[in-house]
Computed example of a mutant assay.
Amino acid sequence: MRLTGFCAITLAVINVVGCSTLNTEQHVVSGKVQVSKSLSGHQCGDTGMNVDQLKSQLEEQKIQVYSQAVTSDGLLYPQVCGAPDGRIAVFTINKKQQDQAVELGFKLYPTTKS
């Protein structure tokens, strides 16, 4: 019984890793990259900026946004009011405009976790 559970978990991990690697290759081939920026929200109240505010920062500099999402930065924070909530906005943009986005305070978003 334990071996079956272990095999199922192993296959699930391989599937996730395989999909994320494929996703990275698609971005390289398509000439697009993902950049991210904190929404600057805090726990118990201040939600910070919304994704549209950050998107407009890019669009004001004529950076085309192909897709957008809100996710976690993956870091751990103490659960206490006033601490950061770790939410970030992730945008898919043209690789040629990556340097412009970085000048605006965006960071290259890693599409795979090592």
Rank of each mutant, 00 (worst) to 15 (best):
M1Q: 11
G5L: 14
G5S: 06
G5F: 03
F6T: 08
C7E: 08
C7Q: 09
L11F: 13
L11C: 13
A12I: 04
V13C: 03
C19D: 09
C19A: 10
S20H: 13
L22M: 09
L22Q: 07
E25W: 07
E25H: 10
H27L: 03
V28T: 14
V29M: 04
S30K: 07
K32M: 08
V33Q: 12
Q34C: 15
V35K: 05
K37S: 02
S38C: 00
S40R: 03
G41I: 11
Q43L: 12
G45T: 10
D46A: 11
D46R: 06
G48Y: 05
M49Q: 02
V51W: 01
V51F: 01
V51P: 15
D52I: 15
Q53H: 14
K55Q: 15
S56P: 04
Q57R: 14
L58G: 03
E59W: 15
E60Q: 07
K62R: 14
I63V: 15
I63H: 12
I63D: 03
Q64S: 13
V65I: 14
Y66R: 01
S67E: 11
S67C: 12
T71F: 03
S72A: 12
L75M: 12
L76D: 09
P78H: 00
P78I: 05
V80D: 00
V80P: 02
V80T: 00
C81P: 10
G82T: 06
G82I: 05
P84K: 06
P84M: 04
D85R: 00
D85H: 00
G86Y: 01
I88L: 08
I88T: 03
N94E: 01
K96Y: 00
Q97F: 00
Q98P: 03
E103A: 15
E103R: 08
G105H: 11
K107Q: 06
L108G: 13
P110Y: 06
P110V: 08
K113G: 15
K113T: 15
K113E: 13
